[in-house]
Write a protein that binds this DNA or RNA. Structure first.
Length: 260
DNA sequence: ATGGTAGAGCATCTA
């Protein structure tokens, strides 16, 4: 069994102690993180190494930043897009082979507002994933795209769909971009396993007591190709990690895969 | 009316 997890940690500097405690509690074999907000130089590879993990990190410093921990092997690391285009100005993608899984760790742009340039950047960014997948994967591979998608796949993933009308995370073009990955053969592991379970979220705004009021979005996803999806034994969003002192605003998503 | 909180870094920007 391989235990895989994704977590937007919202600053590793602010969260290191909590992340280490969570690793001890949950013991994932692979953890992909988003929003480390670190440069590669500042990434605490030694601290994670002492816990038994190999690491890879792609970060620019103040914002964004993605990192992978693995204790089942970590090879073929690709920083950013391998689509032959211009380098992404933001550090939002890192890819690696972890054991028998090819893992894309993604921090999809937020979008900010439907009329913002950043929203067009988000759509282009999602489009670029296809050429990247063409470059780094082959048909039949067990591939995961995991991370903070900043997209709620359907209204069932939104606490109050009316409140989000006209906003990012729920717009048709974003959902269509996610749909294009589904059309490509990826499945949303959590929703496939729990098709009818309502009010399960992975992110809650820090403000207004949203977490305790149950006002959240399910925007942290694990997408898997069939060779990986067929091995899913268990999937959970760890709400407990959103509780207590100084939590991230996101909860981790954990997936157990049976041995190939 | 455009809040409220958190993080980075020290004025706001991002989420």
């Amino acid at each position: 069994m391989t235990r895989f997890a994704t977590w937007n940690v919202n600053s590793l500097n602010a969260r290191q102690e909590r992340v280490e405690q969570w690793l001890a509690d949950v013991s994932p074999d692979i953890l992909v993180m988003q929003e480390t907000k670190l440069s590669d130089d500042a990434f605490p590879a030694l601290a994670f190494g002492a816990l038994g993990y190999e690491t890879a990190h792609h970060g620019e410093g103040r914002w964004n930043g993605v990192g992978i921990l693995s204790r089942v092997g970590l090879t073929d690391v690709v920083h950013g897009f391998a689509d032959g285009g211009d380098p992404d100005s933001d550090a939002r993608l890192i890819t690696a082979r972890c054991g028998d899984l090819t893992v894309l760790d993604v921090y999809v742009p937020n979008g900010r507002a439907l009329d913002a340039d950043h929203y067009q950047y988000k759509l282009r960014w999602l489009e670029r994933l296809h050429a990247h997948l063409d470059a780094v994967t082959a048909p039949g591979d067990a591939v995961l795209i995991a991370g903070d998608f900043n997209i709620a796949p359907t209204d069932a993933d939104v606490y109050d769909p009316k409140a989000f009308e006209g906003q990012t995370h729920v717009s048709a073009p974003e959902r269509q971009a996610l749909g294009a990955l589904i059309d490509r053969g990826f499945v949303d592991v959590f929703r496939t396993r729990y098709p009818d379970t309502p009010r399960v979220y992975s992110w809650w705004d820090y403000r207004r007591g949203d977490f305790h009021q149950g006002r959240g979005l399910r925007i942290d996803l694990v997408l898997a190709t069939a060779p990986a999806a067929s091995r899913v034994e268990w999937c959970v969003i760890d709400r407990n990690a959103r509780k207590g002192q100084s939590p991230s605003d996101h909860a981790p998503v954990v997936v157990d895969f049976a041995a190939a």
